[in-house]
Nucleic acid binder design. Structure first.
Lengths: 360, 360
DNA sequence: CTGTTAGCGCGTTCAA
DNA sequence: TTGAACGCGCTAACAG
């Protein structure tokens, strides 16, 4: 906004070109046909004066900014980073820029932050995995045009772009089952996280689909240190017969892997470990981490596609849900031959066993 | 911008409160003193009508947006992510938001992108590690208020916030020298990268300071796969007598570490490896990666502090350069007793003997 | 302390 | 096709 000296306006250009400001505006926007001579004169005047239109004035009169907002709980999360990148690159191709707002994991910041950010932009994309659904639904009404990431919004026509976490989990469980695993430990993410709920749904579905399976849910978290800290509990589960661990995401899996390695636990020999997200480090872990690949940049691009349609007043199209792709690598292997399981050893951390019921 | 229905304006509020728009403006901005009764009436009218000021109109008349732009070569780089996070959180505390622009590593995009982004905002922060200095200098003149990250701009009064890469390298080399290393391999980053240049300067200084040292520069890159791919060349250097590797950054170091592990090379037994940045994974690598910690969020906060001063028309203060902090972990150890080098022996992984320090 | 007036810079009618 | 006039919503100047 603040330029150097007194900014050159459209009137200056008009004067220099010997035409009216309206004509300058016309050649600028190219919406109407203008006499070629005038066009040339105007272009020249613009170049001579180094004129650049005031975006603020334009925003005021057009009611559009060519800017969209993105609200995320944590800019350091690789998933949101990837989506942001995809979104910003796709939007840039259409002359749009992205405003970011980080709510630093504070659920109560999300509503005011989103509202405020939205006021600066033409549309908004919301990543609010922990905001209670009712509040989210109400919020989105006020925010339109809006796209929501990784949340189902039943009974709402708000476009949603997301990942089929449940399906991913099922694919992963199938993979493990095929390797002979019967008792699996799921290291859960934040309790209020919607995508954790989706994963739990996947767990439930997998259980329903294959009665031989047993899946123990162990509370954990979403970060490296959460996985690191969960190692003892995981080993307790192993002693109780679990042969595989399914982590909330790659960070948890990587943290766990690190700790297990230091404890001398052989992965996948003694225990198989899998993650979710296919973060850049996954393939570089030792052993290379089996995980579910999520198209982060593609998600961002899809978000932009929806956003653009909404801004143009068009229908936004159906919800898009990407099915994660299984990346079977080295951290998962055949189940160790557990002698009819249940080695009776003192199973600490009683954990809420199998009965994984739906989740809000 | 686009609201629902016809937006309620300041005049609507004024009418409802039975006062003039100017008075409403006054209570809104709190700059002048207003009769308490009017204040109350206005607040009430605002609440009744659900009035929200038009930021576009405000921008036009005030010439300020309360938005700053940040241009980065790659949003997926942990360094820029951290700075962005720090900046956006700090700016938010002052009612400012951050617009991001990713130039996807294309140097020629940087100038137009920066100019365009700047036009939407009150100020801009530039991360352009590869833009030739002369062009950068010219660009910053046009962009003011501007803060530049990780670049020295001799003869310019543009505030710079950065990291003392040279110093970091020297500290790291000292660390290695103390461990008995004499021949060290530096895996260089992108050739045109300014911070790579700084690191090379550090290398040169270290050499000048300690004649016993020998540092071989090996071209590499800045990503995981670059480090991974450099393993063979690193081993060749080892065979030529090198006992330690200093990577451009943590990603390179981690990629290298992965490959070395798979090749059965013992780190740090046979070879010490160090990174730069202290990325989140560093402490979780095996062995835990010795690296230089860079205060990413703090950099972002400092950037905001400079930016805010500039926007307010104040002097921006001196350049800030953070000295990286050495995080000596397990990937560096005593130099293997190289019997005048070239050991030729078939090196199996003799396990990392050093004590297991906790991460953190 | 308050209301009136006049722009901020641009797009967009409406005549010509 | 072009120009003059108006208005977007708000703040700043100037009276009262």
């Amino acid at each position: 906004m603040g330029e150097r000296g007194r900014a050159v306006t459209i009137s200056d250009v008009a004067a220099r070109a010997g035409v009216s400001p309206a004509s300058v505006s016309r050649v600028l926007n190219g919406k109407q046909s203008v006499d070629p001579d005038i066009v040339k004169a105007v272009r020249r005047a613009i170049a001579d004066l180094g004129y650049r239109p005031s975006l603020a004035a334009r925003s005021l009169v057009q009611g559009r900014n060519h800017t969209v907002a993105m609200v995320v709980p944590d800019l350091e999360n690789p998933l949101f980073q990837g989506i942001l990148k995809g979104l910003s690159v796709a939007a840039a191709a259409d002359g749009y820029r992205v405003l970011v707002a980080d709510t630093v994991e504070r659920v109560d910041e999300e509503e005011p932050t989103a509202i405020e950010a939205r006021e600066r932009c033409d549309a908004i994309v919301l990543c609010a995995p922990r905001l209670p659904e009712a509040r989210l639904a109400r919020l989105t009404e006020r925010l339109a045009p809006v796209v929501v990431v990784n949340r189902a919004l039943p009974g709402s026509d708000v476009p949603v772009v997301g990942v089929d976490y449940a399906r991913g989990i099922r694919d992963l469980v199938d993979h493990l089952a095929a390797l002979g695993h019967r008792r699996i430990c799921y290291l859960a993410g934040p309790e209020t996280s919607a995508s954790n709920g989706e994963r739990l749904r996947g767990v439930a579905e997998a259980l329903a689909a294959d009665p031989r399976l047993e899946i123990v849910v162990e509370p954990c978290g979403s970060r490296l240190d959460d996985g690191f800290a969960a190692a003892e509990r995981v080993l307790a589960q192993r002693d109780a017969g679990a042969t595989a661990v399914l982590a909330f995401n790659d960070l948890v899996a990587l943290g766990l892997l690190t700790r297990l390695r230091r404890l001398g636990v052989d992965v996948p020999g003694e225990l198989s470990v899998a993650g979710f997200d296919d973060s850049p480090m996954a393939a570089y872990a030792t052993p290379a981490l089996t995980t579910l690949s999520v198209p982060r940049a593609e998600l961002g691009a899809q978000v932009w596609s929806r956003l653009r349609a909404l801004i143009a007043g068009e229908p936004s199209g159906h919800a898009v849900v990407f099915r994660p792709r299984l990346e079977a690598r080295e951290s998962t292997g055949p189940a160790r031959t557990t002698s009819t399981s249940t080695s009776t050893s003192t199973a600490t951390s009683a954990s809420h066993s199998t009965s994984t019921k739906e989740h809000g």
